[in-house]
């Protein structure tokens, strides 16, 4: 690769470096060479799949066939009547609505403690809380199937401490499986949100804190009237980052519960995976239609993100 580039690199020496009227296109051919890997790669692996999904969504395409037959909006009509699709959709929304505030809120509380100069061993604690972030989601899911087993340590510990009457497996119970997944997800990712918050808190100048002390504000009042208003723009950004992250939970949920028992924790990604790759008759078109509906939701969130960031930037500019 490098040798190929070097050979072509011989620059046209006679062209003056800043010659105004000279054909810019000829002189700047290398710009497009530099862009080539990204344009081809991004085009083929990000933009094309986005467009292709919409096309696939209009096809009846059993997985073993070379290609599908056009059926128009039939897949979408079927999706609207598919209880399992809406079940998965609802599970994904519940996941979002419960897990994101938990992750953002707990991380903020922890960040406030770890940001205080009076807290001992701050760096050490930060490292411990960050540790789960670097681990593999799929493996965390498997390890927690053991930890959450009815005869495993979590159940035993809860029974021994009197918080639980009899041993229970929260991941294998239809009423709690989704929430078990949420708890593990918050555990795994809290550390990264903690780092976001610590970075945000670092932007508050130390003299503001001192001014609050001089004015006799207690810890709570300082947080409520000084820290919190300054943190609002970051709250928007961090919440939106974590919201998008909450749509990427396939690895953890597939290995922890595989959507079960009886679809009680099946999020939309597992639904798509199951329909496209695991069914006895894989339905690529139908799964694509589900992905497209899912994508519309994500795009709506991305638009919310753009609006939110713009608003946050405005606030940062004025404060």
């Amino acid at each position: 690769m490098t040798t190929l580039l070097d050979k072509e690199a011989a620059p046209p020496r006679d062209v003056p470096a800043r010659g105004g009227g000279r054909s810019r296109g000829r002189r700047n051919w290398w710009i497009y060479l530099f862009l080539l890997p990204t344009v081809i790669g991004y085009g083929a692996y990000t933009v094309y799949p986005l467009i292709a999904s919409w096309w696939y969504a209009l096809l009846d395409w059993p997985g073993f066939a070379r290609t599908g037959t056009f059926v128009g909006l039939e897949n979408f009509r079927r999706l609207f009547e598919d209880d399992l699709f809406w079940n998965a959709f609802r599970n994904s929304l519940v996941f979002l609505v419960v897990a994101v505030p938990l992750r953002v809120g707990l991380a903020l509380a922890l960040a406030l403690v770890l940001n205080s100069r009076r807290t001992p061993f701050r760096g050490f604690f930060r490292t411990l809380f960050f540790l789960p972030v670097v681990t593999t989601g799929a493996i965390v899911g498997i390890v927690f199937t053991l930890l959450l087993d009815a005869s495993g340590p979590i159940s035993l510990g809860l029974v021994k401490s009197g918080l639980l009457d009899s041993p229970a497996n929260f991941a294998a119970n239809a009423g709690t499986s989704l929430y078990a997944g949420i708890a593990v997800w918050v555990w795994k990712w809290l550390g990264i949100t903690l780092i976001y918050w610590l970075a945000a808190l670092q932007t508050i100048p130390q003299d503001i804190h001192e001014a609050a002390l001089v004015d006799g504000a207690g810890a709570w009042r300082e947080f409520r009237h000084v820290t919190l208003p300054l943190m609002v723009p970051f709250l928007v950004i961090i919440t939106l980052i974590d919201t998008v992250a909450a749509l990427n939970v396939f690895d953890l949920m597939q290995t922890l519960t595989a959507g079960g028992p009886s679809f009680s924790s099946e999020v939309i990604e597992i639904y798509i995976f199951r329909t496209a790759f695991q069914a006895t008759v894989p339905e690529l078109g139908y799964a694509s239609a589900a992905a497209v509906l899912f994508g519309v939701l994500t795009i709506a969130l991305a638009v919310g993100q753009a609006v939110g960031v713009r608003w946050a930037r405005g606030r940062m500019g004025t404060s």
Binding site: Y45, V47, Y48, P49, S53, A291, T298, A302
Partner: peptide, 17 residues
Amino acid sequence: LTFFIPEGYTIIPITQL
């Protein structure tokens, strides 16, 4: 525009490609 596409969304076309 494409900043936040989750991987579950495009896995089918990427596999076909």
